[in-house]
Deep mutational scan, measured.
Amino acid sequence: DTINITLPDGKTLTLTVTPEFTVKELAEEIARRLGLSPEDIKDTHNGKTLDPSLTLAEYGITPGSTITLEIK
Rank of each mutant, 00 (worst) to 15 (best):
P52V: 11
L7K: 02
K42H: 11
L34M: 09
K48G: 09
V17H: 03
G10C: 10
I3A: 01
S65I: 08
D43T: 15
T66L: 04
T18V: 05
E20Y: 07
Y59G: 07
T12C: 09
T6W: 11
I30L: 11
I67K: 00
N4M: 09
P63N: 09
D1C: 15
L69V: 15
T66K: 06
T16W: 10
T2C: 07
P19V: 05
T62H: 09
A27G: 10
S65Y: 05
P63L: 05
N4W: 10
P19S: 05
H45F: 15
P8D: 06
F21Q: 10
L54S: 11
S65A: 10
P38K: 06
L15H: 01
T55C: 03
K48E: 09
L13G: 02
T14V: 14
A57D: 07
S37P: 12
S37W: 09
T18E: 04
T68K: 14
T55V: 03
I41G: 02
L15D: 00
T22C: 01
T62D: 06
D51F: 04
E28W: 09
L26Y: 02
E25F: 04
R33M: 13
N46M: 10
E20L: 10
D9N: 13
D9S: 13
K72S: 12
I61M: 03
P63K: 03
R32W: 06
G64S: 02
I61K: 01
L26I: 03
E28C: 11
P8H: 08
T62S: 08
P38V: 15
L50Q: 03
L13N: 01
Y59V: 15
T6F: 12
L34E: 02
G47W: 09
D43K: 15
H45R: 13
R33C: 09
P38T: 11
F21M: 15
G47T: 04
T44C: 15
V17T: 04
I3Y: 02
A27D: 04
E28Q: 11
K48T: 11
P52D: 11
K24G: 14
A31D: 01
I5E: 02
Y59C: 15
R32C: 10
S37Q: 12
D9A: 05
T16C: 09
V23Q: 00
L34Y: 04
N46G: 10
Y59K: 03
S65R: 02
